[in-house]
């Protein structure tokens, strides 16, 4: 039985292309700042969860949600939105698996953004059906 998830790109390239055209020379610098948030905020959310600090889970997830959506990482933005809602409600029982998904997505998303920024195509999917 195949348990490896089917690969799909996380990044909305059209959104990213629009941002590149709009920012022109400033695009790379701006994108690097977004990438830093994408890489580091999931870990901050996990730390907040370990401390059972629901308010901080909500705030960090809120920030990550906006960052992801701005650069076209929509599925990751949705995960962050779900965590934001959990944090805001104070109920973190179901948060841990979402955070693990978020961390995995942040690695893949950052990889995709790097390739976009460098003007290269992805060498191969992270996960291929049937691997």
């Amino acid at each position: 039985m195949n348990t490896v998830p089917e690969y799909r790109e996380l990044t909305d390239l059209q959104k990213l292309n629009e941002m590149k055209q709009e920012l022109e020379a400033g695009f790379s610098t701006v994108l690097r700042h977004y990438q830093a948030g994408i890489l580091h905020r999931p870990e901050r959310i996990r730390q907040a969860l370990e401390e059972q600090d629901a308010e901080r889970v909500a705030m960090e997830s809120h920030s990550l949600k906006s960052v992801c959506r701005q650069v076209g990482l929509m599925p990751m933005g949705e995960l962050a939105a779900q965590l934001e809602t959990m944090g805001a409600s104070g109920c973190l029982d179901q948060a841990e698996p979402l955070i693990e998904q978020l961390i995995a997505s942040s690695v893949q998303g950052n990889h995709e953004l790097n390739h976009f920024c460098n003007g290269t195509t992805l060498p191969r999917p992270f996960f291929e059906k049937g691997d």
């Binding site: 920012l23 022109e24 700042h33 948030g37 906006s66 960052v67």
Partner: peptide, 16 residues
């Protein structure tokens, strides 16, 4: 804006 990414984005855009 407390979020550095958005602040840098807006600052870059407006300076340009």
């Amino acid at each position: 804006d407390d979020d550095e990414s958005f602040r840098i984005y807006l600052v870059t855009l407006l300076r340009q």
